Simulated scan of single mutants.
Amino acid sequence: MTPRALKALGEADCVIGNGFYLDLVEPMLAGKEVIRSGMGREVDRARRALDLAKDRVVAMVSGGDAGVYGMASIVLEVAERSGSNVAIEVIPGITAALSAGALLGSPLSGDYVTMSLSDLLTPWEEIERRLDLAFQMRVPVVLYNPRSRGRQHNLDAAIAIARRYLPATTPVGVVKNAYRMGEERLITTLGEFGDHFAFVDMHSIVFIGGEETRIWRSETDARGIITPRGYHRKYVY
Rank of each mutant, 00 (worst) to 15 (best):
A134N: 10
D111H: 03
E11F: 04
D195A: 15
R4V: 13
E11P: 02
G150C: 10
V200H: 14
P167F: 04
T2F: 02
R4F: 09
G19C: 14
M28E: 11
V141P: 00
P146I: 06
V172C: 13
M115A: 06
L104F: 00
N177R: 15
R164Q: 10
T114F: 07
R4Y: 11
L186Y: 04
E212G: 13
L29D: 06
Q152L: 07
P171H: 07
I215P: 05
A134F: 01
L143D: 01
R45T: 10
E42F: 06
Y144T: 01
I16A: 07
N177V: 10
G70R: 04
A66S: 15
V113C: 04
G31Q: 11
M137S: 12
Y231M: 03
L155G: 02
W216M: 15
E77H: 07
A72S: 03
Y235G: 08
E219S: 14
L186A: 11
G110V: 01
P171E: 07
V75F: 04
I159M: 11
E184F: 05
S148N: 09
R36G: 00
G83R: 06
L117V: 04
N85S: 15
V206M: 13
A49I: 10
P228G: 05
Y237L: 14
A162R: 07
A30L: 15
D23M: 09
S218M: 08
G182I: 12
D195M: 14
W124L: 08
R47F: 13
D51W: 02
R47P: 14
V142D: 00
T188Y: 12
G230A: 07
L166S: 09
H203R: 15
I187R: 01
I215G: 11
M181E: 14
L6A: 13
I205C: 09
I161C: 13
D195V: 15
H203W: 14
R48N: 09
G17T: 02
G64N: 07
G64H: 13
M1Y: 11
A12D: 04
A168L: 10
A87G: 15
P92G: 00
R185Y: 03
E126Q: 08
V172S: 08
I159N: 08
M71T: 05
D55L: 10
V25K: 02
L103Q: 03
G194V: 10
A178P: 10
L121P: 07
L52K: 05
S84N: 08
I16E: 01
V75N: 03
R81C: 14
G31L: 06
Y21G: 06
S109E: 03
P123F: 04
D65C: 01
D132W: 05
G67S: 12
R180G: 11
G31M: 13
L104H: 00
P140S: 04
N154R: 06
P171N: 12
L22M: 12
I91R: 00
A162P: 10
D111T: 07
D221P: 00
G67P: 09
L29E: 12
A59H: 14
L117D: 03
